[in-house]
Simulated scan of single mutants.
Amino acid sequence: MKRNISPVYYGDYLQLDKILSAQSLQSTRYGEPAHDEMLFVIVHQVYELWFKQVLHELNSVIDAFAQDSIPDQALISVVHRLNRIIQIQQLMNDQISVMETMTPQQFLAFRDYLVPASGFQSIQFKRLEISLGLKREFRIDFDKQSFYSRLKDADRELLEGLEAKPSLFDLVDEWLARMPLLKFNDFDFWKYYQQATDTMLSDDRQTIVTNTTLSDTEREQELRDWQSTRDNFDALFMQENYNKLREQGKFRLSHKAMLAALFIKQYSEEPIFNLPFQVITALTEIDEKLTIWRYRHAMMVQRMLGTKIGTGGSSGHHYLKKTTESNRIFLDFFNMATFLLPKSMLPPLPDAISRYLGFYLSQGKS
């Protein structure tokens, strides 16, 4: 039976009467409208619309990882939606260039009318950070102690509720940790890996010691750096040491999740690991795009305000620059390159291992 579908018109469907009448300029309250305030308002409204879409995609990804099992078909959708988020992030980063067509003096024509409004108060952006895994114990806020107390009750309850729920980082960590450590019949990958890395690190140390172009001071520094790398490698094989470094903030992934992610990245070209590798790669890129957005935002604020404080009371450029490197989520995926071996040093995976891992990668939570 054919449905009786009512006609829908472009303007009504998009509710353009609401959208196009939502630009209220503060400068008109005090005299002539500041021409560039319209740009400022629209850019930030567009950001909020993209935040809404990113949260829509992100929540579906979180729901997928929250299930008892994650079959390949679900991972295909996850990768697709994560890649869509990446493309949206690229748009948001490019949008800063539009803002930078405004000069500092053009911004100053209306800037003082915005106090105490600040992008820091974006509830959707805070939802995005928390949902990804940047909960309050991991992030830098310019006013961490009183931030939640300054929110409306409904917004505070929403964000505090999110803080209590598993984030995407938490769920991905659990998903990775479900993969068994690889000791299967006569195949012991980690024993092989430890022997190979011992050889690699010994060669590195010998290169430093015999490098005649280094001064004594430079050689001592390189040897200290080498020892730090050696300690990180050793921690992979000693969970107690790993947990100590994790408590110090050097790692965030659990020990099992770190080993699983490392194995997936080592064998990324194996069909059984292609989808998990794409998930890890997409999450790495999302974190990178977010870091680039923070950096470009910080540079734009410095360009517009110099060292002035932000309208919301933060230290402006200084605060934004500080969050650029500190407010990271999937940093372990970036640093994992430290532990990768050349393909030529990897043993081939037996067919039985691929079948064994294929079963576990799609199984439910233990």
Rank of each mutant, 00 (worst) to 15 (best):
F169M: 09
R29C: 11
Q227F: 09
D72Q: 10
K144Q: 12
H255N: 05
S149Y: 11
L275P: 03
G249H: 02
A74Q: 13
D94P: 08
L182F: 03
L182K: 01
T311R: 05
S118K: 08
N83L: 02
K256M: 10
N243G: 01
M99I: 03
R139Q: 14
F51V: 00
Q106N: 12
L223K: 06
T338E: 13
I19H: 10
L55N: 05
I140E: 09
A337W: 09
Q194M: 04
R139D: 07
M299W: 04
L16G: 15
R219S: 11
F187T: 07
M345I: 08
Q53Y: 11
T197R: 15
L14T: 07
Y9D: 06
R127L: 04
E288T: 14
L283I: 03
P166Y: 01
R328M: 06
M300L: 14
T103R: 15
V41G: 03
A164P: 01
D287M: 02
T324I: 05
E247F: 03
K321A: 13
P180K: 15
I88Q: 05
K244I: 06
L75P: 08
M99G: 05
H255I: 01
L262H: 04
N4V: 12
T207E: 11
P166N: 12
H297A: 06
L253F: 14
Q26W: 02
A298F: 07
G312E: 12
E163I: 08
F184K: 08
I292T: 10
T311S: 15
F189A: 08
E37L: 03
S167I: 04
V41I: 15
L182I: 15
Q15W: 06
D17I: 09
V172S: 08
D287Y: 01
V61Q: 01
Y193P: 06
R139G: 11
A154G: 00
Q248P: 00
S97W: 11
D36P: 00
T207K: 14
F334T: 13
E137V: 09
I5N: 06
K152H: 13
S344A: 14
F339W: 09
L91P: 08
P350C: 10
P276W: 05
V79F: 02
F65S: 08
F273Q: 00
D141F: 10
N93W: 13
R111E: 14
R219P: 09
N241R: 05
D198E: 13
N211H: 04
A177W: 11
Y13M: 04
R3W: 00
Q278M: 04
D63F: 00
R355D: 12
L290S: 11
D94S: 13
E218D: 10
D332C: 05
Q87T: 14
K144W: 05
N185A: 15
I62N: 12
Q53W: 09
P348M: 14
Q95V: 04
R111L: 11
Q15S: 13
I85R: 00
N335F: 13
V8P: 05
A64N: 10
K343G: 09
D204L: 13
L259R: 12
Q221H: 14
H317E: 11
Q194C: 04
T284E: 15
